[in-house]
Nucleic acid binder design. Structure first.
Lengths: 244, 244
DNA sequence: AAGTGGTCTAGACCACCCC
DNA sequence: GGGTGGTCTAGACCACTTG
């Protein structure tokens, strides 16, 4: 009896909070502006800080917010469109948007990669580490796995220079490539390169380069999921994608 | 003094927990097996339940675990490879892997979509809702936005049948399409269709279909990020992708 | 009714950034 | 040193599924 209001299913507080904050972000804050701190916000909305944080986490996941320890929470700019299709190791890529080699190694790849490469588990391959910078921001960290058979001009073993591997790889005639995209979380090393905390959500792009019917190389690139929108263009998208 | 071990930077507990659990998953549990409940696990590792949950959330984000309220936490199977490239509205798609129309409407699209469609903000378009099923599982929910000009054979206004819009769209000669992939979180409606909780991470695939130099249609598909790996193949990937 | 994961609280301490 | 977000705790209650 009483006030007959079954209330159906009460929406979780953090969910309601999220929509309220999202609206406020659109109407009352500018990009880059810093929000009040979490303790104040929680008090203002009458919830515990953990609950407020749950809402902030969601908004960060959607690319609406950016949080930096010791600094504060700010309104994030729209996600950058990052072209994936032509960013392969043997396409130098656009001038201002470049992959930068960080180093190289001669090690055994993880089992999953070895399977793709069709190499013996435990066998060593060239591993080139690169980062990708778009408009000044580091947006991705990549590990490029190249089996010795794909770069016959190089002696098996550690390469003196990471660019040598990339250079040899360019000489290889490609049949094609296939790619997959999935959600992951940044490992300790990737997190450092991407300037994020470990565990941050990333988009993992695995590219398999095929030459002469075999897998010539495998690239595993992890993109910041908060700031990036991966684009796969066939026609010319530029203005629209950037306007976001 | 005591044992002089500065311990450098202590790794967060939930991070360490995650790796321990991850190893245990590989070695001691089978796919589909249900883990001990959260309270027991937390006690066993000597942490608060919230901390244990933080580790579980990460593992779920990586597609290692599946949690169902009222049931328990189980070991997830490897992610399904879901082909995106040839799954457009005018490619019927493979036989066993199909989009199923759910309904249609005649409404104004969100502002972001209207911008892509180059229609007036507030103008109505055909909206077709579909779900995609792969191996029996619903993996994606899509909203297909079709402006009236792209389907001249149909009267402007609510379509009697969602298949009519799709049928007319197939008649349109396409110049090409471009796509973007980004991280998002499921809204209340999408969550219901995907059998997930609101806020669950999803991969949002936005496809712009171009005909005669204009945007003919826009599809916004949200894929379950926990169970799906999106594939963009140019060569034939099958066995490898499925073996995961 | 019992057991599960999901939400929420009120507090504490820590790591980091900037002044 | 003072402020920020990040981690952690110990408890409570709720929503859902299953027997």
């Amino acid at each position: 009896m009483g006030t007959t209001q079954p209330e159906a299913v009460p929406e979780p507080k953090y969910w309601h909070l999220k929509t309220v904050l999202s609206d406020a972000l659109d109407s009352e804050f500018a990009v880059g502006e810093i929000l009040p701190n979490e303790r104040d916000l929680a008090a203002r909305f009458g919830v515990a800080r953990a609950t407020l944080r749950q809402a902030l986490e969601q908004l960060e996941l959607e690319g609406r917010l950016q949080r930096r320890r010791g600094v504060g929470t700010s309104v994030a700019p729209p996600r950058m469109g990052v072209a994936v299709t032509d960013a392969g190791p043997n396409r130098p890529g656009a001038a201002g948007d470049a992959w930068q080699p960080i180093g190289s190694a001669w090690e055994a790849p993880p089992a999953a990669v070895a399977r793709l490469l069709e190499t013996e588990p435990g066998a060593c391959v060239h591993i080139v580490r690169r980062t990708r910078r778009t408009r000044g921001q580091i947006v991705a960290a990549e590990l490029l796995y190249v089996p010795a058979r794909s770069v016959p001009a190089l002696a098996a073993g550690p390469a003196e220079d990471s660019t040598a591997v990339l250079h040899e790889l360019q000489a290889l005639p490609l049949d094609g490539q296939d790619r997959s995209v999935e959600l992951g979380s940044a490992g300790a090393d990737e997190a450092r390169q991407l300037d994020r905390l470990p565990g941050s959500p990333v988009l993992v792009v695995t590219t398999r380069y095929v030459a002469a019917g075999r897998t010539a190389a495998v690239a595993v690139a992890t993109y910041r999921a908060d700031t990036c929108k991966l684009t796969f263009g066939e026609s010319t998208p530029p203005a629209v994608a950037l306007a976001g």
